[in-house]
Design a protein around this nucleic acid. Structure first.
Length: 557
RNA sequence: CGGAGUAUAGUGUAAUGGUAGCACGAGUCGUUUGGGACGAUUUAGUCAGAGUUCAAAUCUCUGUACUCCGACCA
């Protein structure tokens, strides 16, 4: 490719509002342009990288035995109704009608479609297992797009869906996909943590995210010091410790409290006790039933909404209660009681680790003290509902908080969809049985952005060879005829070469080459020719070496 | 969705209610050619609509878009 003919230009200045490094570099290098928030044009350079990543994914998926298909972009909305996902995923699901008034969802993920496709066949246990995948545009009406390609409203995703006779066969596939994903990301030049996570509205019982550590990422997760435990903040567990095991149990009583004591800090100041000695109440509302749920937790801990939704089986249904909601049960923010309101009470495990809590029944100028869980009050449900924190331990190992970009994930779906959609196969015994399923996704654009985020220096991107838009960036300083010859030789040898044939100063060409970030740069100039050939330099190194054309072709192969 | 902010040429920026300017970019001509050259010349803009005013980029209102924080999400 001659750069003079390449559509898309590099740009020197950083556009206003661009903060993520990958966004800046992909924009300045002429890989992408924004259409509207969260929707991007992929320019020729960006498309080449995108396609390289797709090829790596495709190659590994095929190796693992998956088969490529394609579903329509518009999904019959009735299918989503079968699985109740118009409610739980409704906020990011986009719907539209055709001229007949038939309702469709713009596909954001395709479990229903695939199950529906499979349902159209008479399938027996002999046909199982299989794994089908596609690359397709996914639409998510995100409340807020950001970080360039990291969080968008429209993107190409590789999504795969596997069907099995039972859990055992599924587990084999899950391990295979785990391995396949690790290989894919390694080939893309990304190191990933495999993080246990929450299934959210996708459904199923467990899943793992592939996360590349990065400051711009939005996945918060924990890794134990020995590396054996790795879990997303949404699900991370930790060892619960007794705060004051040696204290004697005291009688609960009502104590006078100055009116200025309102916040947790006020409490700490007034009682001269740490926040872990106080009760805290957090109120959520079930948006479907309007039921209020009060989570009672140790004062120093935060409520983990994902754990609450998951353990109470209310995925996607909870939101923070408003002042009006609190008014309805006769209280207000900061004065919620740990028992007695007309609401469902849910307790965190931490309640059992503290003797003589302060709080629980705060009135204008009084509060209860020496409150003990199990003796003075009880919750309907008690379980782990807290957010883990950096420095907590899990199985005795310290947890380290990390942040990263989720580039892929693998889900166990179990019977979730097959039961909701009544999708069965004929078993060996002649019975109809539900499929045991899994699904597996990779965001291609997000992977591309993450690679740029990880592989760059102050001058530009440093693409790994496997995903680079071109293998070598050929630059001539004068010497056009000689370069033309070299260009043709490289092309004939099947080497992906971008020739900067523009009539520009060397400095500009070098700067652009650094920005675009091809793995190698080959310079043809009078100086290089005098020294016997072409100067070849790796993008990651400072100095190059002069070699002959023949050797260049040899090395680039 | 809640809160805040911004909107001027392809990009970055200026203009306190009074001539829309500068730099980069792009075009043309010439010189130049190993780390974003130089000269000449050309090009292109006030988000949309309404209002106030002799006069609006500037003030007011409405709309739209974008950014940030939060919520949400994967």
């Amino acid at each position: 490719m001659k750069q003079s003919q390449l559509f898309g230009k590099t740009i020197k200045e950083v556009p206003t509002g661009v903060s993520a490094k990958n966004h800046e570099l992909l924009y300045r290098g002429g890989f992408i342009r924004e259409s509207v928030a969260g929707r991007y044009y992929f320019l020729p350079l960006g498309m080449r990288v995108h396609e390289k990543i797709m090829k790596i994914i495709e190659c590994e998926m095929e190796k693992a035995g998956a088969q490529k298909i394609l579903t329509p972009t518009l999904h019959q909305l009735d299918l989503w109704r079968e699985t109740n996902r118009t409610d739980t995923a409704g906020f990011e699901l986009m719907t539209l009608k055709d001229r007949r008034g038939a309702e469709f969802a713009l596909g954001g993920t395709a479990e229903e479609m695939i199950v529906d496709m499979v349902r159209k066949f008479n399938i027996s246990y002999k046909d199982l297992p299989f794994n089908v995948y596609q690359f397709s545009n996914k639409f998510r009406d995100e409340l807020r797009a950001k970080g360039g390609l990291l969080r968008v409203r429209e993107f190409i995703m590789k999504d795969a869906y596997s069907f099995h006779v039972d859990n055992k066969d599924f587990e084999r596939e899950y391990k295979l996909m785990w391995k396949t994903y690790s290989t894919i990301f390694t080939k893309c030049g990304l190191e990933t943590h495999v993080v246990a996570a929450d299934n959210g509205y996708i459904g199923g019982e467990y899943c793992h995210e592939f996360v590349t550590e990065s400051e711009v990422g939005e996945s918060d997760f924990f890794v134990s010091k020995d590396g054996k435990y790795c879990a997303h903040e949404d699900v991370a567990e930790f060892d619960h410790v007794d705060i004051n095991p040696d204290d004697e149990l005291k009688e609960m009583e009502i104590a006078q409290q100055p009116e200025w004591v309102q916040t947790m800090e006020d409490n700490e100041k007034h009682y001269k006790l740490p926040s872990n000695r106080f009760l805290k109440n957090v109120v959520y509302k079930n948006t479907l039933t309007d039921e209020l749920i009060i989570i009672v937790i140790r004062g120093d801990l935060e409520v983990n909404k994902t754990k609450v939704e998951s353990k109470l089986q209310l995925v996607g249904q909870l939101e923070a209660a408003t002042d009006e909601d609190l008014e309805k049960i006769g209280t207000k923010s900061g004065w919620v009681h740990s028992w007695g309101h007309d609401a469902k009470y849910v307790g965190d495990l931490s309640l059992k680790g503290v003797k003589n809590f302060i709080g629980g029944q705060k009135e204008k100028d009084t509060d209860t003290i020496n409150v003990n869980y199990g003796r003075d009050f009880e919750c309907e449900v008690i379980d782990d509902f807290a957010v883990a924190q950096d420095g907590f331990t899990k199985d005795g190992q310290k947890l380290i908080a990390k942040k990263g970009v989720e580039v892929g994930n693998i889900f166990q779906l179990g019977y979730h969809y097959s039961k909701l959609m009544n999708a069965t196969f004929r078993s060996k015994t002649g019975d109809d049985e539900f499929y045991y399923m899994g699904c597996y996704g990779i965001g291609v654009g997000r992977t591309m952005a993450t690679i740029a985020e990880i592989h760059h220096d102050e001058n530009g991107i440093m693409w790994p060879e496997s995903v680079a838009p071109f293998h070598v960036h050929l630059i001539n300083i004068g010497e056009e005829e000689k370069t033309q010859e070299t260009y043709e030789q490289l092309q004939d040898a099947g080497i992906e070469v971008l020739w900067d044939d523009r009539d520009m100063r060397p400095g500009q060409k070098f700067a652009d080459a650094d920005l675009i970030g091809c793995p190698y740069r080959a310079v043809v100039s009078s100086r290089s020719l005098e020294n016997g050939g072409i100067e070849l330099k790796s993008r990651t190194q400072k100095e190059g070496e002069i070699i002959s054309v023949e050797k260049l072709i040899e090395q680039m192969k």
